[in-house]
Design a binder for these strands. Structure first.
Lengths: 210, 210
DNA sequence: TGTACATCAGTGAACGCGCGTTCACTGATGTAC
DNA sequence: TGTACATCAGTGAACGCGCGTTCACTGATGTAC
């Protein structure tokens, strides 16, 4: 089982989710194709395992980066989280694409992927938890307000609704920046992706009130 | 040729790029599979045609929406552009995924896709062209500054480098928001996607100085 | 201590599927003298 | 006006490929009496 997962991870990293097949995993691991079904019910289940795996690895990566900086400064934390997120994404492009790119056609993500996915958001939001937003002229519709409050409650964050909304916006921006870079939309436009990313991350920190 | 493209568009819209095959297009259009090669050199070329097509359709959509509002107010323009972008994306999810989601494995976008892709960015940036950014404490590294200046020059925009950078950030944010929504990352978090999107779009307008 | 049985990982063949691409060809339409 | 030839859209068969999944099976290992 360990072998199968390892090989599947390797193939995902090398060729992407679309190219992942039970048969080639079996082949590489020295089994006949049908033997894999002793361990995994279907291709979709394998994919689910890999997705959970990737979410967890990413969350671990960011979490330990945050633990390592040992600072109480929100901006530094935010910067650290963003940089480690980007580092992981660049090192695991296919995994990133699997998690945050186009949904795999015909595959419906089961409930089990939610919790590991949430860990990253929790880590990111925690870095802005002590941001002091001078003033929020943001008037929230009831629906959005209650969503935001639910997020804060679920993640046990001491943030008011407008702050949560702002922070969620910053997270979406972050993934927008990453997806643009990793999916090739900055090619020919941005020459220095490192500097550009850091600049934007700092701008987001400011927007968020850090 | 027209028929082939139409059918390919239809299959792309229905099943996504991954499921698009020359054989099924041929079948549906009433040709034998090899006959398609009289019109299209390979599957990749067909994909390229569809990508160019989609970029153009999207740019058209946003451009005409902008032309229709007839306002000189930047914020209204920005809002209009964002809303029409989102409307198109929601109505053409697979096309959106093809353009802005994970890159198709083994497919390298040729030069021909750049121009049509640029039209949208030009339209978006034009809406912030007369934004007045009170003050930009942004210190730009040389590399980023020259990239930004090149963008402004290429698109013939009267924007200083820091403003371009801010605007590009807003565009990335926009796509981050859209991708999150369309790729299912707001499910269970945001209940009222319409309101949430508009709120964030307005926040971006403010950030950008509109 | 030895026999009978159950468990279980892995095998091998098969089903049925769809794909991209090539190639020699037919047969209708258009063109040139 | 009529014949000879060229063009060109489309055919049909084939190559070679890989896939997910099922199913009856073997043979080694472990367990119970």
């Amino acid at each position: 089982m360990q072998d199968i997962l390892e090989e599947a991870r390797r193939q995902l990293a090398r060729d992407g989710a679309a190219a992942l097949s039970l048969r080639s995993v079996a082949r590489e691991v020295g089994l006949v194709s049908s033997a894999v079904y002793r361990y995994v019910a279907s291709r979709d289940e394998l994919l689910t395992l890999l997705i959970i795996d990737a979410y967890s690895a990413l969350a671990d990566h960011v979490t330990t980066a945050l633990a390592d900086v040992r600072t109480r400064d929100g901006r530094t934390q935010w910067r650290t989280a963003c940089r480690s997120l980007r580092a992981w994404a660049r090192a695991h492009q296919h995994e990133y694409a699997l998690l945050y790119g186009s949904p795999v056609p015909g595959y419906a993500a089961p409930q089990d992927t939610i919790a590991p996915a949430t860990r990253l958001y929790a880590a990111l939001l925690s870095t802005v938890a002590d941001a002091h937003l001078a003033h929020h002229p943001m008037r929230l519709p009831r629906s959005v307000r209650s969503d935001a409050e639910l997020v804060a409650a679920t993640l046990e964050l001491e943030l008011a609704a407008p702050e949560v909304v702002t922070a969620l916006g910053a997270i979406a921006s972050l993934f927008g920046l990453l997806s643009f870079e990793l999916f090739g939309h900055t090619t020919g436009v941005i020459s220095d992706n490192d500097a550009y990313f850091l600049l934007q991350v700092d701008a987001l920190a400011t927007t968020v009130g850090l």
